[in-house]
Nucleic acid binder design. Structure first.
Length: 207
DNA sequence: TTCGTGATAGAG
DNA sequence: TCTATCACGAAG
């Protein structure tokens, strides 16, 4: 089976962001010589989601209008890190943030770019991942569903145990369980907080 | 736990 | 022009 036949096409991203985020976990991110298995994503909704850039950034709303599903939305965060998102336009619009990956190929190159040897820490966060893969704003608005060298691809193994958990690193609309990880993966950014979330649990949580 | 870093947006 | 904010990461 060739790489091309496994490419995830635009139809995948013409659904809703939550489902896309969940199903992108376990797929492969192919970027030049580097390949990683995606172990962590988050969904952001263009509507009614205060954590999404579209909520407060006119440029993000314009991006959604201007681009097709599967376009890369890449921005610079905290003066240091690039974030890789994929545009979803379908039943609902939004983004999938690619947060962590398990290095599969091009590992020596990733180590060099990151200045690290520990494979677990090469792509264990959205900023680390883009550094390891050399993803920057020059890839902004790139269509990630056509070029087999810059795309997502279905993995050969299909059985993936995905855990839903609350998104992290945000202050607004943080309660939605729209973070998705591979259960038990050692390559995620931050360990999942709870495998089973109580429906209402205000007393056991400090702060 | 703290802090650097720079883009963005909105207020004045 | 100024300020607040931020989907982070590394050092301590």
């Amino acid at each position: 089976m060739t790489v091309r036949s496994r490419i995830i096409r635009g139809a995948f991203f013409r659904r809703d962001p939550i489902r896309c985020a969940r199903e992108l976990v376990g797929t492969e991110l192919i970027w030049g010589k580097c390949i990683g298995k995606i172990v962590e994503t988050e969904a952001y909704l263009a509507e009614n989601d205060e954590a999404c850039h579209t909520f407060s950034r006119p440029t993000a709303r314009a991006f959604v209008e201007r681009n097709k599903a599967g376009a890369a939305y890449i921005y610079f965060s905290y003066g240091a890190h690039w974030m890789l998102n994929v545009l979803v336009k379908g039943i609902a619009n939004g983004f999938v943030l690619v947060r962590a990956a398990q290095p599969l190929r091009g590992i020596a190159l990733m180590k060099k770019r990151r200045g690290l040897d520990d494979e677990r820490r090469l792509c264990s966060g959205p900023g680390k991942l883009t550094e390891a893969f050399d993803i920057t704003d020059r890839n902004h608005e790139m269509n990630l569903c056509v070029d087999p060298r810059h795309c997502f691809a279905y993995a050969v193994e299909e059985d993936v145990d995905v855990v839903a958990d609350e998104r992290i690193g945000i202050t607004r609309s943080a309660h939605h369980p729209w973070r998705f990880t591979i259960r038990g993966s050692k390559f995620v950014s931050v360990p999942v907080r709870s495998l089973t979330r109580p429906a209402i649990d205000r007393n056991s949580s400090p702060r």
